[in-house]
């Protein structure tokens, strides 16, 4: 994901655009929505190829995990305002309810604490109403350039 030179000020819109053409995020069509000082919101449009249950048409949980991994990861670069290599140490995802088939899923990741080596993140995903989320995540990342 190093489409941006290490050490450069982090622009999530540009970064998401740069990775749309290839890789796992590109294959799923994950796109930029919005950001703040310590959060990034991305979107995953409904796609038949990402269905996890052919009977119901509900999206698989994996794509929602990937969306939240990406949103929380980018939130760290926003909070530190610098692009540094990092790796996910762990992530827990609670699947609160199935996303409604056909709807875009929005994932907002937040970085709420950064230490010298570790970043702590959390986030929620919803399919139209932020007050009625489909998933909640909590995780940690490690900076790999330490």
């Amino acid at each position: 994901m190093a489409q941006q030179p290490v050490g450069m000020t982090f622009d999530p819109a540009r970064f998401t655009d740069a990775i749309r053409t290839h890789g796992h995020n590109g294959a799923m069509g994950i796109r930029y929505v919005n950001h703040g000082d310590d959060w990034v919101e991305l979107a995953l449009d409904y796609d038949d190829r990402l269905i996890g249950n052919a009977d119901t048409g509900v999206l698989a949980s994996g794509p929602i995990f990937a969306l939240m991994d990406m949103a929380t990861s980018m939130a760290i670069w926003r909070r530190t305002n610098i692009f540094r290599p990092q790796a996910t140490l762990d992530m827990r995802v609670d699947y609160l309810r199935p996303a409604v088939p056909g709807r875009t899923v929005f994932g907002r990741g937040e970085c709420y604490r950064v230490t010298r080596r570790i970043a702590f993140v959390r986030g929620q995903a919803h399919d139209g109403d932020p007050a009625d989320p489909v998933a909640h995540v909590a995780g940690t990342f490690m900076f790999t350039d330490e």
Binding site: G62, F65, A66, D69
Partner: peptide
């Protein structure tokens, strides 16, 4: 590999 793909697997 993307962590999301590993998790999906």
């Amino acid at each position: 590999l993307h962590g999301g793909a590993i998790t999906g697997l």
